[in-house]
Design a protein around this nucleic acid. Structure first.
Lengths: 224, 224
DNA sequence: ATGGCAGTTTCGGTATACTTTTATTGAACC
DNA sequence: GGTTCAATAAAAGTATACCGAAACTGCCAT
């Protein structure tokens, strides 16, 4: 069943985006799958298999995979590509990066956000809030919220730098999410953040984001 | 015919058994050529030509070129690869990133630097200082200094995030370098930075780096 | 003279085939 | 029963060929 859906999806996108190269399409498709957490930590991505699944040759798949490696989404091993091994040290390093980049990024969002940006953030927040016990649905909402405010970052270099470690952020969130109290804290944090962005209160948004990241790190530290 | 094929196979084996893959070697070779400014703004890098020059097929060359693209060193055009057309907006965006990341990075360097790190930084600085009128040599020295202190950043995620836009940094430096006064400012800035790192004065190093980046941006703005 | 139009060339993209490397499996030996 | 080494398999790496698109060239017409 899953194979059949993948097959349909593959051909749909092939027809819909036929102006772009196979490499770009596959890169984007794989990136979305990674961002949505559809690739487990022990899954090995192999060009042969993906090429057969997508109905193309190895070359575009291989190039897409290598691009994902150089973007930090994947790690090339001697036996297929896999999620980068996120050791506690690496998690801590990513949290340092987050504290450096994301507070400033939300300041820009608070300044430049459009009504569409606000709508996307509200929708995503509603999604996360409505998914009471459904961890997967909550996770999708949280990810949608992150993508929403990231989409409102006008500085492309900054946005790309942040998106490069989105895979790690996602994995950490997955680890933290099972705790209902953590989900409550996340929703409250996002709600406050959204209000600050709506009010275009840059400094407040900055502090809220910093606090949010700090809370996320301590929550993760208690688990691992 | 059989002899010729045997010869090819043997020759191929020699290279395949060398430490790194063709792709890595070519990537590094091209990166060095770019860093040394041996590639003019109007030069078009074409995989066919480079492959013939290096004695390999198009594939590893093509992959190396595309990796350089995703690292910001090159830009893929419809007719070969070329230096990225760095628009003022993009330059400004990178400067924002630099202000966010590099001051904190040098704080870490001031804390964690080893004697080897200091030696590398001193050597690079001496290189830049001794190259009075030689712009290319000065550029190499400045690049070596940057690589030296970046190598002392223990946070791999932070270092990678910074190195991703180092291509742009180098292009901007190249544009400002012809002015002797700018070179003097750079040397003085690096010297002060090195002293702060030697003294393990993190806060001072932070402020010096912030000032250094600010000066670089204003110097570039006066040209462009 | 200039502006478009078609032939030609160039170069990127993809497919396929082959080689090398490395992990895993299995068998033999201690 | 455990250890080591060889055979096998899987996947990366590389080479070559073909195709299509984009750009350059030169011609023609206005």
């Amino acid at each position: 069943m899953a194979n059949f859906l993948d097959f349909l999806s593959g051909w749909y996108t092939l027809f819909a985006m036929s102006r772009t190269s196979h490499r770009s399409r596959i890169h984007e498709a794989l990136r979305l799958r990674l961002l949505r957490g559809e690739v487990g930590p022990d899954v090995r991505l192999v060009d042969h298999a993906i090429a057969a699944e997508m109905g193309v040759s190895r070359m575009p798949v291989r190039e897409a995979l290598m691009q994902l490696v150089s973007e930090g989404y994947l790690e090339g091993t001697s036996r297929g590509f896999a999620l980068p091994n996120l050791s506690p040290e690496r998690i801590a390093e990513v949290f340092v990066l987050r504290r450096l980049l994301e507070p400033h990024a939300v300041v820009c969002v608070a300044r430049d956000r459009t009504v569409n940006d606000l709508l996307a953030m509200r929708d995503a927040l509603a999604l996360a809030e409505s998914a009471k016990g459904d961890v997967a649905a909550f996770h999708r909402g949280a990810e949608a919220f992150r993508n929403a405010w990231l989409g409102a970052v006008r500085n492309n270099e900054l946005r790309n730098a942040i998106q490069r470690y989105s895979g790690q952020v996602q994995s950490v969130r997955f680890a933290t999410l099972p705790d209902p109290a953590a989900r409550k804290i996340i929703v409250d944090g996002l709600k406050a953040l959204l209000q600050a962005v709506e009010a275009q209160d840059g400094p407040h948004a900055h502090d809220l984001m910093l606090r949010f990241i700090y809370d996320a790190e301590t929550a993760y530290a208690q688990i691992a």
